[in-house]
Design a protein around this nucleic acid. Sequence first.
DNA 1: CACCAGGTTGACC
DNA 2: GGTCAACATGGT
Length: 207
Amino acid sequence: MKSRNLADIYDKLLQELGPQEWWPADTPFEVVIGAILTQQTRWTNVEKAISDLKGHGLADPQNLANANPEKIEELVQCCGFYHQKAFRLRNIAQFFVDNPMDIVFALPMGELRELMLSLQGVGYETADSIILYAADRPKFVIDAYTTRMMKCIGIEGNYMQLQQLFEEQLPADVKMFKEYHALIVEYAKKYCGKKRCDACPLIQGVN
DNA sequence: CACCAGGTTGACC
DNA sequence: GGTCAACATGGT
């Protein structure tokens, strides 16, 4: 039983870990907020911040754009980098006030991605997370865990190279892209250390 | 106490 | 093109 391609690895991960059902959020804008807040931060901290923002009615573009910057900082402090994250969140909220989500998210993929990347605080991973989980469109998200897992199976590359691999070997299925990304994160958390990956049960036998 | 977390940026080569 | 410190709190 050798898995040579990314589709087989997906099946194995799903079998091993079960459906992850990412991304936990009630609205697309909450996904956007979470995508910024989770940068270099544990999701449990993000959950608290989002919950608190919602409690103050600030999980909405218009309200967040008009909110007191210091209040936002206070609410997202638990996520670290709170000064820049608060500032960026407020700017992004204003962006979606000026450019409604239903319009922006319907743009051609190339334009949509460039537009997301033009926002302060939105790099490749955050842009692709927003596209996949908020806009519900097929973009494969590469994160540190994906890079780690791929290295475990002997494949190294930069963000765009790895993304290209996934996107050319898999059908452009939004639901599957979401699930696969989530599975990789859970898998790598469990088995792939930052420096070594010596206990990867599914990966053994891949090469 | 050291290390890490679902990264991004601007400076520099 | 690529590398790297800075950004900051909270958990193990």
